[in-house]
Design a protein around this nucleic acid. Structure first.
Lengths: 387, 387
DNA sequence: TCTAAAACGATCGTATTCGAACATGAGGCA
DNA sequence: TGCCTCATGTTCGAATACGATCGTTTTAGA
């Protein structure tokens, strides 16, 4: 990648530290150097280079060989006991400090401790401009070696923000976000929960419980929502449930502020009406907070859960608090943080030779009362492979 | 990923340490080496290789045999009292032992050594039934704690095989394969190269070089091919190149056996004709073997490469051998094996609580002569973010 | 079992590289 | 200014890497 610097023997002499830095550069670029070439290229004596090589070898940064040096090799038996890795600082910018993200941060911190890294967390708004401000602040004031961030991808500034992150001089790992394929963000790595898979798992579970009409209630103001809907669609298709006639409602379109709780109640009534009309007996509800409210609403309206309406919540923050307790898809939040830090640590250790990793983690389905034990159709091995 | 070309007898001489590393690489890839072959490949005397083999054998990294060396075998009684028994054994079933997969195996073996695991490799045919036979053989005769496999996903038996793998009592990691979303293989993990991304990278590069009509020549008999085509489609869409009028030919449909080389030549002529008709000045050619043949064909027909026809190969096994040398997308084969073993090791260590990981690795684009320096349109910063 | 071919390794020779000892020169500090 | 320290260069004997030769050992095939 680095366009070969035309050798500069005439240039002013480098300090020894710069020279060694230069050696490491050549090493990383070519895997090996010869004393003779480097001495000629830098315009110093071979002995000097040899001394440098010795120093680098002592620090474990290179392996000495007759005639030059190579990148440290496991075959180098003079390998000094490792450790003494100098520690890095990682910045982390997340869109919320009290919902969802605390567990991600906790997982990241645990792994960071293991890897002997320092993590600096900053909260941000769900907004590209503020994301950028917060990242910039970290870059300016702290000495960050890497960045873990969950940026806002929507709006006009989303793509621009992605490009900007991709062009940062330090490695960047997205958490719970993916760069869209049409933006060639070839340096960005990410770790994200496969929400579509989670939604599909929920739908298949409901199918196994005997439900043949499975609706979906989402909140499009959340970045997770589109993936849940996609998974719901895919699962319906795989189970051959026609999309038309399947209830799909979005509570964010109801104008959250304007109606207050009254608005929500009337929306829920609207949803229940649609369910009755279409024969829908089970719902996947995004954000378990909303699922709790929906279960409450069903009970208030005299519907039995899961008898008349089976419910699975997407996300598992408060689902267990409802009465009855709600089955829920639980994203592996701790692991999202943990794997993000692992990615970053590996990237910092291995440098550019390491290929870009993009990781999806599958969520778990936690079964509770709201979805089991009230089958419409005996589910006797109809779909043995579904779950 | 070794920066050296797979084999380049003409290359500058390696240091002894690098040579030994090469030996280990070949050993891990093929299980055994002969002194003669390696000496020829590296351009040193056989005696030197023997000395290297002795050193490796002394360190317990290889077993000496008459004529060459093998991976350390328990039958080798010269083994100095090895400590640290292998904690787990991992079976690995790959569809080829001489194309593409040796490097994957090499990466896997290297990581396994690090993690103190044992790997048992079996070759298989590109065929679901044989995949299953080989896996079954491993399960029956060896004591396998985990399985890394690259199954054939096509045909009638593909889905069935996936379900069967998903239901195995040991953890399974797919290499270079993904289970389709409609099969709920909720336990399968995988690591695969994002070939679509690689193809997109190639197309963007050609666009940056000034080409405005970019065709695609694939071989649908390879499991990689659909992903390459998908990436080509996506990139065309992102660059607003209309799909109709873009050359897309498949060499597998030509009946490989029936025509022989004559058939291939006439197919290439057909492709070139289409290119002329559509104004296509650049081609992405899947399998670099085919790319080499195609370049040769272009030169034979009096076309200058890259002057009249720019070419990027997909895959980088032999691309550097062509004249002119071919730019190629290089999948991170070593890392595919390495990461597969990492996944397996983590799974075996952490058990079921660990969420299912699904990892994509991005390939590299290696620029050589066949695609650079002959722009049709000055590419003055038209697309600053494209690559 | 025997035999020819191949592989092996001990020994030596040569080209190259290494590093200890000493020399030089550029700053830093009293 | 003089002295000290550190980085670097020069010289030269020692060490190393590698190849050639050739007698010995192993292997494969009849």
């Amino acid at each position: 990648m680095s366009p070969e610097q035309p050798s500069e023997p005439t240039g002013k002499s480098l300090f020894s530290l710069q020279r060694r830095e230069r050696l490491m550069e050549e090493l990383r670029a070519h895997g090996a150097i010869t004393v003779r070439d480097i001495a000629a290229k830098l315009g110093v004596s071979e002995l000097t280079i040899r001394r440098d090589v010795n120093i680098l070898a002592d620090e474990g940064l290179a392996s000495r060989v007759h005639g030059g040096a190579t990148l440290p090799s496991p075959l180098d038996r003079s390998a000094a006991g490792r450790a003494a890795q100098h520690s890095y600082s990682i910045g982390m910018v997340v869109p919320s400090l009290d919902y969802y993200w605390p567990q991600v941060i906790s997982g990241a911190r645990a792994e960071a401790e293991e890897q002997n890294l320092r993590i600096l967390v900053r909260g941000s708004a769900y907004d590209a401009a503020d994301n950028r401000r917060q990242v910039q602040a970290l870059l300016d004031t702290q000495n960050i070696d890497g960045l873990i961030v969950a940026p806002d991808m929507g709006g006009d500034h989303g793509p621009e923000l992605i490009r900007w992150l991709n062009a940062l001089p330090i490695p960047v790992v997205l958490a719970e976000r993916r760069a869209p394929a049409e933006i060639p963000a070839h340096r960005l790595e990410w770790v994200a929960t496969d929400h579509a898979f989670g939604a599909g798992m929920a739908v298949r579970h409901l199918w196994q419980e005997g439900h043949r009409r499975i609706g979906c209630l989402t909140d499009s103001s959340s970045p997770t929502s589109p993936h849940v809907v996609r998974g719901w669609h895919q699962a319906l298709a795989a189970l051959k449930i026609p999309l038309e006639g399947s209830v799909h409602e979005d509570s964010a379109q109801q104008g959250p502020a304007s109606h207050g709780n009254g608005g929500r109640a009337s929306h829920f009534d609207h949803v229940l009406e649609l369910c009755t009309k279409t024969g829908t007996t089970a719902m996947l509800v995004h954000s378990d907070t909303q699922a709790v409210a929906f279960v409450q609403h069903c009970v208030d309206r005299g519907l039995s859960v899961p008898g008349d309406m089976a419910i699975v919540g997407y996300d598992d923050e408060v689902a267990y608090l409802a009465e009855p307790a709600i089955s829920a898809v639980r994203p592996p939040k701790q692991y999202v943080g943990k794997v993000a830090v692992q990615l970053m640590a590996a990237r910092l250790a291995e440098g550019r030779m390491r290929p870009v990793h993009r990781i999806e983690l599958n969520p778990d389905l936690i079964l509770r009362e709201s979805s089991i034990g009230a089958p419409r159709i005996p589910a006797a091995g109809v779909l043995q492979d579904s779950l």
